[in-house]
C-alpha cells in the first residue's frame, strides 16, 4: 500500500492505496464520493468523468497514484456554495437533459470542461466534445440543448431531430 494525497473539491485528502487502485475507486470507495459513476469500466462511456488539474479525464482510466498531488474536481463540488444547482446543472434540469441520470455526472463534468475552454460553443462543437460520453436514454438532443442554454445561447436554434 502506498500513501496518496490530493485535493478533491478544494479539500485535502489522503489515503492508502494499491498500485492498481483506480482514481474512481479512490473517490467512491475511500472518500465515499459516489456521484462519480462507473459505467463501462473500459474508458468508453464517460460516466466517471472528473477534472484533474482542470482537464476532463475518465477516472476509471487513471490510477489513483497518478493523481497524487493534483487538484481533482468531481460532481459533488459543482453545486453553488449555498447548495443550489450551478448553471450547467440547472440547465440540465430545465431542458430535460437526463432521463435515468446515470450518465449525468459525467455529462456535467464534460460540459464544464468545454465551457471553460470555449464559453460559446456551436452545436457542432458541443456534439464533438461529447464524443467520450455515452447516454443511452436521451439521444443527446436535450443534453446539447442544456449545454447551449448553460452557455447563455439561444436553444431554439437547435433543430429538432
Amino acid at each position: 500500500m502506498t500513501q496518496v494525497s490530493m485535493t478533491v473539491n478544494g479539500k485535502s485528502v489522503s489515503g492508502e492505496v494499491e498500485g492498481r487502485t483506480l482514481l474512481v475507486n479512490f473517490l467512491r470507495d475511500h472518500l465515499s464520493l459516489t456521484g462519480t459513476h462507473v459505467g463501462c469500466d473500459t474508458g468508453q462511456c464517460g460516466a466517471c468523468m472528473v477534472h484533474v488539474d482542470g482537464d476532463a479525464v475518465k477516472s476509471c482510466n487513471m490510477l489513483a497514484l497518478e493523481a497524487d498531488g493534483t487538484e481533482v474536481a468531481t460532481i459533488e463540488g459543482q453545486a453553488n456554495a449555498d447548495g443550489s444547482l450551478n448553471t450547467i446543472q440547472q440547465a440540465f434540469q430545465d431542458h430535460h437533459g437526463l432521463q435515468c441520470g446515470f450518465c449525468t455526472p459525467g455529462m456535467v463534468m464534460t460540459a464544464a470542461a468545454l465551457l471553460k475552454d470555449n464559453p460559446k460553443p456551436t452545436e457542432a462543437e458541443i456534439r464533438h466534445y461529447l464524443e467520450g460520453n455515452i447516454c443511452r436514454c436521451t439521444g443527446y438532443h436535450n443534453i446539447v440543448k442544456a449545454i447551449m442554454a448553460a452557455s447563455g445561447q439561444d436553444v431554439n436554434a437547435i433543430a429538432a431531430e
Binding site: G46, M49, V52, A56, V57, K58, T110, E131
Partner: peptide, 9 residues
C-alpha cells in the same frame, strides 16, 4: 484522436 478525455491523458 479518441475523445477529449483520452486526449488529455
Amino acid at each position: 484522436i479518441g475523445d477529449p478525455a483520452v486526449r488529455n491523458r
